[in-house]
Design a protein around this nucleic acid. Structure first.
Lengths: 312, 312
DNA sequence: ATATGACGATACTTCTGAGATATAGCTGGG
DNA sequence: CCCAGCTATATCTCAGAAGTATCGTCATAT
């Protein structure tokens, strides 16, 4: 049973005449007669009544033709769907990102991407740098935005591109003595109980903190350690101490909290976009394209990568 | 694009390996490679990633395979559906019948047929003899039960078989003087205003009435003429006169009406089952089979017809 | 670094079967 | 009764599906 049999049967039902149906199919009449006969033998039932007035489907033929139409529609749709998927118009993009990215690059990128690719399902996961890296390596994410380049097992199979900057800020309860100030100094911070991200979860922030306060500062040693930025803010708001984290971790203002700069201004590692080097999916390419249009300081690595994908 | 391509792609996706998929398909590996390559060329997109760990569908491949599965399912279902339709297990039977048939042969026939062929859609039309005949000739009915053999244009293309008897009865309001009597005589009827079926609608009943009352009886000439038996009963119940019709027109007892025999007992023409001589549909054959099992006095014509259908 | 093995792609051959041409068989209308 | 129109059958041809042999590539083992 081949698709040809379905096409021939449908043409015959449409033209109600072997000769004309064959003409419409671009073949001669005898082959059509034979194919229909073969089809009827394979189905095990007569599908057409040959009368003097024309060729008409039997009840079995009607039942067969209804299914045949749907089968051919599915085949046509298969080609269309595959083409759309190949062009990255449909599909799925699993994005891991650090909370601070929600403030600057992501809103514009996601808005533009959602407009350009309305049928791509976006799965957004707010994750720490280390978790995003692990997700990429394990194939559970397609692309990630992290603070600093991914490190650790499997990171060598990732491609990373800087797409923005960040720096350290402090966060505290609105009843804290420093609340209302535009900035706090290192000396002031040393006298506070600090709240910082767990070292293995946010290695980039941890390194910057060491640079700011000193390698084995007592303030760092005595700091409260939180799993993620939400916890830092929550602990700070409840008066546990002064939280330290990336400036853009504040996607939206929250009640009961006060944010201020840290002097000296302490740059954090760049915002980094990463993805699996061997991932050539068109959805990813489209996303990278959107990134490039939205982030002026994307580097040559992304261009190079895009060129690789296109020439394939 | 042929069904073969779909089957091969699905096998490859299942086995994730060209050699094993080819083995499962009963072909060698190179033809499978070529068919997949041809498919990818026709679709215009790479459908499989060939990696060292195995062969896996791309996003386009996943989209294609989902449709391909449904297409092949439709093809398989087409064969199944056609077979069921050819065996008369599914389909439609449009039955025209005179109301009186609802009392005797139809209940048992329909019950048995509905049990044997639960997926055949029964379309029941209570029609006069002449309307059923016209429906059969016009192809709007598949089978009909009438009073007397169909006559008129196109009736020669019908096959007719007697399946039961009927006779004339009278119907009147319960307040009519004759109500309560087991029978009325011809002499009594002549003194009543009669209600009868329109001659062209029920020719068999009309002929029997003429035989009973005389060719041009004043009682007949002055009778009220109704389109169908329901109207006869309704008019009789409302006191217009005494209705005359087939005994088995009384499918169910009704309030405000009294039925009684007519003496002398006046047989009506046989109940006749008719269908188009060239109709060889399996649903009709199944229905005729049911009729034969339920009606002991079906004649040789039906047997002969059934034999014709089977030997085809 | 080299050898080895597994796997898919390519080159070439073989043969099935789809399609073309010619014609027979059937049937209703003149 | 013949003719016209339509489908089925017979035979041939050729495209293309499948088979065989071999190559190229890459990962792993020695």
């Amino acid at each position: 049973m081949e698709a040809r049999h379905l096409r021939y049967a449908l043409a015959l039902a449409e033209h109600e005449h072997f000769g004309r149906a064959a003409g419409a199919l671009g073949i001669a009449q005898p082959p059509l007669s034979k194919q229909i006969a073969d089809l009827e033998r394979e189905v095990g039932a007569r599908l057409f009544d040959r009368t003097r007035q024309g060729v008409f489907p039997t009840a079995a033929g009607e039942a067969f033709l209804a299914r045949a139409r749907r089968a051919l529609d599915e085949i046509a749709a298969a080609v269309v769907d595959a083409g759309r998927a190949a062009r990255g118009e449909t599909g799925r993009l699993r994005l891991g990102f650090i909370a601070s990215a929600l403030l600057d690059p992501l809103p514009g990128v996601l808005r533009r991407f959602g407009r350009d690719r309305p049928d791509v399902r976006l799965e957004l996961h707010e994750l720490s740098t280390s978790r995003s890296t692990a997700g990429l390596v394990a194939g559970e994410l397609d692309v990630a935005i992290t603070l600093g380049s991914p490190r650790g097992a499997g990171a060598e199979h990732l491609v990373s591109v800087p797409i923005g900057h960040d720096h350290l800020v402090a966060v505290m309860s609105t009843v804290h003595p420093y609340a209302g100030r535009p900035s706090v100094s290192v000396a002031q911070l040393r006298r506070q109980r600090l709240i910082i991200a767990a070292g293995e979860d946010e290695p980039a922030v941890g390194a910057s903190l060491q640079a700011l306060l000193g390698k084995s500062s007592p303030a760092l040693a005595g700091a409260a350690v939180a799993r993620d930025v939400h916890t830092i803010i929550g602990l700070a708001a409840s008066g546990v101490g002064v939280g330290l984290g990336p400036a853009r971790m504040l996607a939206a203002p929250r009640p009961e909290t006060w944010f201020c700069e840290v002097t000296p201004r302490t740059p954090l590692p760049d915002l980094i976009l990463s993805f699996a080097a061997k991932d050539h999916s068109p959805v990813l390419s489209a996303f990278l394209d959107t990134i490039r249009q939205n982030c002026p300081d994307v580097g040559a690595a992304l261009d190079h990568r895009l060129r690789l994908t296109e020439t394939e």
